[in-house]
Design a protein around this nucleic acid. Structure first.
Lengths: 143, 143
DNA sequence: ACTAAAGGTTCCAGCAACTATAAGGTCAAC
DNA sequence: GTTGACCTTATAGTTGCTGGAACCTTTAGT
């Protein structure tokens, strides 16, 4: 089948599939006589695996690991599980960051009259206040 | 003062400051005789405003808007407030996405034995299952 | 006075994970 | 035979910086 059919079946875009091939995340598709990529049901299965893993929050390199485990009959399920639990932790810390942001934003909004006048607590606080910073990001600065 | 001193005072990196100048987010700094950028306390104030706005979750273009309002004596605080509340909504929908991801991941992990064997519910579900997708992202596909 | 380190300058490349665009080849239908 | 949809490749853009090279200036030490 052509790439667009494969794309339809796996839930990815055609461009995404070509991109995954270009970075070696999937093996190069075999080509039909006209040079078009030609996908088998097995290929689509692998692509669908990727689609789901990406949608579940795994990054490209993590997907590469998962595919490796998927293909490896010697795997230990404990290994897979630990990848997933690690991901849970990452996601939870992202959530915490965003919640802190939301709280900061709500705090700002609550102190702003939101009327026709120019006086604005939000701008005041952004320019001067020592309001709590939601995220303390590392900055390693210049080379 | 030199760029690294300004950087220290506003909490941004020197490179970030140069970058903000290069994209026109801040006005080009005036230069001293040797060609070095020379910052005033006022410049630092604007940079600190940016540092806080970014840390609070605003994107570059949103910062541009906020700075515009900051500089505009004719502003309405309602305008500023609505920017902030819009941002709150964006952040909340990101949180919801991440929570859905986390739940999916936890669901996967809970069904996996996590032992020495190769049988793994996680891989099984990623390859075949119709498990709930956390995010339904738009895909507009090819041109 | 000389030298080495630490700062400044510019510009170009790269990160994630694609997406958009251009310029072209192929195929099915009318 | 020509339209239009589909395929191909290659390149550039997205976001918000960060790292590096190559070079100049200032400062501190000998």
């Amino acid at each position: 089948m052509n790439i667009s059919e494969a794309a339809k079946r796996c839930g990815l875009g055609s461009k995404t599939i070509r991109y995954y091939e270009s970075i070696g995340l999937v093996a190069p598709a075999k080509r039909s006589e006209n040079g078009y990529r030609d996908y088998s049901d097995g290929d689509v299965e692998a692509l669908r695996f990727l689609q789901r893993a990406r949608a579940t929050g795994f990054g490209i390199e993590e997907c590469r690991q998962l595919l490796g485990l998927y293909d490896n009959q010697q795997r230990h399920s404990s290994h897979v599980k630990s990848l997933v639990l690690e991901k849970v932790e990452q996601v939870e810390s992202q959530i915490a960051e965003l919640e802190a942001m939301r709280d900061t934003l709500n705090g700002l909004a609550s102190r702003c009259a939101g009327d026709e006048g120019p006086q604005c607590a939000i701008l005041d606080e952004l320019s001067t206040a020592e309001h709590e910073k939601p995220v303390a990001k590392k900055r390693e600065d210049e080379s």
